[in-house]
Amino acid sequence: MDRKRWWWEFAIALFVFLIGAYGLFESLKMPTGDPHDSPGLTPAVLSAILMVLSAALMFYLLFIFKRNLKGWSLSESKGRNEGSREERLKTQRLVVFIALTVAYVALLGKIPYTLATFLYLVGSYLYFKSVKLHVAIGIALLVSLSLMYSFGHLLGVRLP
């Protein structure tokens, strides 16, 4: 397991532990009564098991981390630095895509669905350099209009 993967695993185990702790805390605040009448019983039990399991995973990871630290060499770090540029680009792509999608969903309801879809498609095609500008506009127009027509008119599916 490399260092990055270790961090991911530890962060997720911690996240799940915190979710479990929150679940347990909230469940205990729910009304109590007979076991079958208590809405908090099931989530409390599930949260407690989640906490125990994620704590076990964190303990396990800490043990591995200590072992891995001993074998961490300079050459490995150099290799990591070279690869880190690609890593940064990868993260940038993901962040831009997520931001584009969030902006699109936030726009829904504020401007017409077809227009929002058209803008989203053109934006994503151009950012990811999938096609040239005029092709991007053409495909985006075709997709957004056909979505509106096929779902909205033919199938009667309500669009956002």
Partner: peptide
């Protein structure tokens, strides 16, 4: 362990909503 965590997390998510027997929102 990860499989169990995944399943338990899913089960916990499935408890979200109105409780069927008491009507309590969870």
């Amino acid at each position: 362990i990860k499989g169990l965590l995944s399943a338990l997390f899913g089960l916990l998510i499935s408890t979200i909503g109105i409780d069927v027997t008491t009507g309590y929102p969870r």
